[in-house]
Design a protein around this nucleic acid. Structure first.
Length: 644
RNA sequence: GCCGGCUUAGCUCAGCUGGUAGAGCACCUGAUUUGUAAUCAGGGGGUCGGGGGUUCGAGUCCCUCAGCCGGCACCA
């Protein structure tokens, strides 16, 4: 007999060779029905796999979050089986579970098409109906390699070869079909259920390396039940509606065209939003000891050679030449080297440090065509960039002040806390280990002191120093880096920046590269998606539409417009010969935060009926004109100004 | 950059196996003067992404280029 300890501490006795399934049945029939896998001494364990002896066992049921991973992984397996049955000659590679679903990468000459999905899904459903047991089998390494080679599954053979010696090789059988797999799996395919759906096909490099062959990846989503699946599909639809590219068109904010790939044409409303954001940032920076500068767009190639960019970043740089001159100029991809030039003018004393130079720096980078994405990844953009020149001793204080400023700015824009990643020294780096020790410690101390909840991103630092990256998610769950702060000991050296210390000697300053919003373009994209286009009043580029009910009210509407404009509000009139229902709908759809309705009554009484976006039904406030404008002006003040 | 898909009116999209283009919304005109999410009627508008080819005939088939979309890779 073996003793099994349950999560509640109780102990059950089971015969030798008993499985977690036996345990579940021993506890209750209903538990046996919903059990998916087990955790044995903390390890994943198939329900039908004999227990190793005395152990502590927890059963994972269909309701548990962890069950989803197993369902998704199993669904990937039946996808692979279905595909191999329907498309003979297709090689299988890997197929893990991922967020919301799974994928499987196949090697096949003919591309898969979404038109194939119906047939594949049908076959998958048949495999579920067949309720094939998943059977675990351990194999000898060489035998496994030989077997997969013989089957023509060279990718699988390669996978086994690369497994560490001594690792147990297991395969899982489901009927005739089997796959190399670590497990765990459900007892049988019937347990998977049918709450899955194939979503898309995509290319993906074998082992994520662009030098390798391109495989065909089929993505799918899978859930515990139909209700969850439907909810997920609904979420996707909703997410699509808040895509900033769609909102940009609907709200007439910006457009792109192929003659200026990756560069934005900002329309009046969009540019007003842009300016609201930059004005806000300017105030915040000035209040926090930054000085704004402006540096050139084009600099001589020699300059970029000195900075190291020509060597390290050349393929991302736009260059320019002119007929009459030999010189080659490069459009700046970053502002940092230019900022060093400003620092280098005249002599700097330790008393000048920290020196914080800020620029709304226009940069251009030749990004790979496949990576361009609306406002999120562009070739021409503006950074809210700044470089802090300071001493090593000042790093902690400066980073801390930066993190606090960043948090406050994000809060003003209504963001949830961004994900923060702390990236330390990469393989390829410059500078001594002592300096790295110091820089990393300083950055970490400062991040902790600022109360940031960050995760480690080992080895992903810049070649010149460690960094903190701030990452937000877009409507479809893709993550984008916005803010960053990076310690740099390298560029000051290369471009010979120095200051005179209190010892009357020359010293190298440290440079902190930092941005809060990152790329203005990207930030605005994220902002739009975050609010589904329903921007808070202070940011809204179109704040008020004055909508008349009858043309008798037109003169009063003009008067209201003039008063609002004089008060600095972004207001416009809608005097069209349309019903008020029509106007309200159109401007609500257009995400105008406030509709000021004017009928005969308001015109006579000198009032305004204010209707606020998002508030259902007849909820409105009727206020005397002056009061209404005062109220709106109060709402229109940026958060930093409200704080006074 | 790589793989796949897509590109038809200002926008969203129809157009079966080839027979010289349609809808809704928007726009314009007229009627309606209207009280909180679409008033009615009429009208104009398209080199079907560019180029090449097959064919008696191409929006539809083939080639090619570009852009966009989805992934992958990239993001110093």
């Amino acid at each position: 007999m073996i003793n099994i300890t349950l999560p509640d501490g109780s102990i059950r006795e089971l015969p030798e060779g008993a499985t977690p399934m036996d345990l579940a049945e021993n506890i209750s029939k209903s538990l046996a029905k919903v059990a998916m896998i087990a955790k044995v001494n903390g390890d994943d364990w198939d329900l039908m796999r004999p227990l190793p002896g005395d152990s502590s066992v927890a059963l994972v049921t269909r309701k548990d979050e962890e069950a989803l991973e197993v369902i998704r992984h199993d669904t990937a397996h039946i996808l692979a089986q279905a595909v191999q049955e329907l498309f003979p000659g297709t090689q299988v590679t890997i197929g893990p579970s991922i967020e919301d679903g799974f994928y499987y990468d196949f090697a096949r000459d003919e591309p898969f098409s979404t038109d194939d999905f119906a047939a594949i899904e049908k076959r998958m459903a048949e495999i579920v109906d067949a309720d094939l047991p998943f059977e675990r089998e351990e194999m000898d390494r060489d035998a496994a390699i030989a077997m997969f080679e013989k089957m023509g599954e060279s990718y699988k053979a390669e996978l086994i070869r690369d497994l560490p010696e001594g690792e147990t090789i297991t395969i899982y059988r489901q009927g005739e079909w089997f796959d190399l797999c670590r497990g765990p799996h459900l007892p049988s395919t019937g347990k998977i259920g049918k709450a899955f759906k194939l979503m898309k096909v995509a290319g993906a490099y074998w082992r994520g390396d662009h030098r390798n062959a391109m495989l065909q990846r089929i993505y799918g989503t899978a859930w515990a039940d139909d209700k969850q699946l439907k909810a997920h599909l609904f979420r996707l639809e909703e997410a699509e509606k808040r895509d900033h590219r769609r909102l940009g068109r609907q709200m007439e904010l910006f457009h792109f065209q192929e003659e200026a790939q990756g560069q934005v044409f900002w329309h009046p409303a969009g540019w007003r939003l842009y300016r609201t954001v930059t004005s806000y940032m300017r105030r915040r920076l000035e209040a926090n000891g930054y000085q704004e500068i402006r540096t050139p767009q084009l600099m001589d190639r020699k300059f970029w050679e000195a900075s190291g960019h020509w060597d390290k970043y050349r393929e991302n740089m736009f260059i320019s030449s002119i007929d009459q001159e030999e010189k080659i100029l490069a459009v700046k991809p970053m502002n940092c080297p230019c900022h060093v030039q400003v620092f280098n003018q005249g002599q700097k004393s330790y008393r000048d440090l920290p020196l914080r130079l800020a620029e709304f720096g226009s940069c251009h980078r030749y990004e790979p065509s496949g990576s361009l994405h609306g406002l999120m990844r562009v070739r021409g953009f503006v950074q809210d960039d700044a470089h802090i020149f300071c001493t090593v001793e000042q790093i902690v204080e400066e980073v801390k002040a930066f993190c606090e400023l960043l948090k406050s700015v994000y809060a003003d824009f209504g963001f949830e806390e961004p994900r923060v990643k702390f990236a330390d020294r990469p393989e390829q780096r410059v500078g001594s280990d002592e300096v790295w020790d110091k820089a990393e410690a300083a950055l970490r101390t400062a991040a902790e002191a600022s109360g940031l909840d960050f995760e480690y991103n080992p080895g992903d630092g810049a070649f010149y120093g460690p960094k903190l990256d701030f990452v937000v998610k877009d409507a479809i769950g893709r993550e984008w880096q916005t803010g960053t702060i990076q310690c740099d000991f390298n560029l000051p050296e290369r471009l010979d920046a120095h200051y005179i210390g209190d010892d009357n000697d020359k010293h190298r300053p440290v440079m902190l590269h930092r941005a809060i919003l990152g790329s203005l373009e990207r930030f605005l994209g994220v902002l739009l998606e975050n609010y589904s286009g329903k921007l808070p009043f202070w940011l809204a580029p179109r704040q008020v539409v004055i909508a008349t009910i009858t043309s008798d009210a037109d003169p009063y509407a003009e008067q209201v417009l003039a008063a609002m404009k004089a008060a600095g509000l972004n207001a416009e009139t809608d005097l069209r010969n349309e019903k008020i229902n029509y106007k309200v709908r159109e401007h609500s759809v257009g995400k105008i935060p406030v509709i000021a309705v004017i009928g005969r009554k308001e015109a006579e009484e000198g009032t305004l009926a204010l209707r606020f976006l998002g508030e259902e039904g007849n909820k409105q406030e009727v206020l005397p004109l002056a009061e209404a404008i005062a109220r709106l002006c109060d709402d229109a003040r940026a958060p930093d100004l409200k704080r006074g």
